[in-house]
Amino acid sequence: MVLKIPVIEQCTVSGDMQQGIMVEDLAGYLARNKNLIFPHRHNFYHLLLFTKGGGKHTIDFETFDIVPWQIYFMSPGQIHSWSFEGEMDGYVVNFDKDFFKTFLLRPDYLGSFSFFSGFVRDEVFTVKEAEREVIVDTFKRLRTYVRDVDFAHISLLYIFHLLEKQRDLPSPLQEDIYNRTLLRNFLNLIELNYRSLRLPKDYAALLYITPNHLNALCQEVLGSSAGEIIRNRVLLEAKRLLVIKDYAIAEIAYELNFNDNSYFTKFFKKGEGVTPEEFRKKHT
């Protein structure tokens, strides 16, 4: 049994898409996609800069108040919805998962930017005033010359670097680079295996390190144990599935590799504080 989650395809919402990328003003994008308010996930990268407007938007069940000059990044697979208020404006960029594949030597390069960490807490922030003019100008140029794929690659990476620089993150030491690479590999492995591998020792073996090393690394960088990170990923997927009302709780438990429905319910309530049914009622 394979569950089908509402996935918004790039071609469905992107209109005049060129070679795997779309750049559009927010007002025009919303006018074309006025019914896109239900929880859904994309199969592409999605970033949005607000320059005007208000309301709320939610990414993986974390809700944010919209303010001008807020920007958010979403990776493929994350669930989001929005509720806008007033006159909205800004810029939207959608690009395919493989957009940088032939342009960058390292296919995992996007993961080096903090806002592509996979954690919602890193994906939403405010653009500092000193960077606003140059970032808007770059968005305008990117929209004008989006058919030039090399220009689009370079411009988008330029925006990423400007935004990463303005976050004032400390430069990592060599040891930090090694540990963060390990952590990124751990998170990637969870993404691939969370349905079947639930123990830190399984992931530590795949990374050729000890479970103690893995746990210490997770505690130091993320403030959670390796086991908690694995369980949180399973819990997140359960929440994503629960907002789609067509599937029974037992079906979701089966998809996530729980032995029975009652065990899944206990797992969910321990992590979220409510039963799956209560969570679904609240979010749908």
Rank of each mutant, 00 (worst) to 15 (best):
K4M: 13
I8T: 15
I8E: 15
G15M: 09
Q18A: 08
V23N: 01
D25H: 02
L30T: 03
A31P: 05
R32F: 05
N33K: 09
N35D: 13
L36D: 09
I37R: 11
H42A: 06
F44N: 04
H46N: 06
H46Q: 14
L48K: 01
L49I: 05
F50C: 04
K56G: 07
H57T: 07
T58K: 12
F64V: 08
F64N: 05
P68Y: 09
P68H: 12
W69Q: 06
I71P: 00
F73Y: 07
S75Y: 06
S75D: 11
I79W: 02
S81R: 10
F84M: 04
E87M: 08
V93N: 03
D96I: 06
F99M: 04
F100V: 03
F103C: 13
L104F: 12
D108F: 13
D108L: 11
G111N: 06
V120Y: 12
E123Y: 02
E123T: 03
V124Y: 00
T126E: 15
T126F: 11
V127A: 07
V127R: 05
K128G: 10
V134E: 11
V136G: 05
T138H: 05
F139T: 00
L142Y: 01
R143L: 10
A152R: 01
A152D: 00
S155I: 00
L156W: 02
L163G: 03
E164K: 04
D168Y: 13
Q174V: 12
Q174A: 11
L182C: 09
L183T: 01
L183D: 04
L183W: 02
F186L: 13
E191P: 08
P200C: 12
D202Q: 15
A204T: 05
L206S: 14
L207Y: 06
N212F: 12
L214P: 00
V221T: 14
G223H: 10
S224I: 13
G227P: 02
L235M: 08
L236C: 10
R240F: 09
L242S: 01
D246S: 15
Y247K: 08
A250C: 13
N259H: 15
F264V: 07
K266I: 15
G271V: 07
G271T: 10
E272H: 06
G273W: 10
T275Q: 09
F279D: 00
K281T: 09
T284C: 14
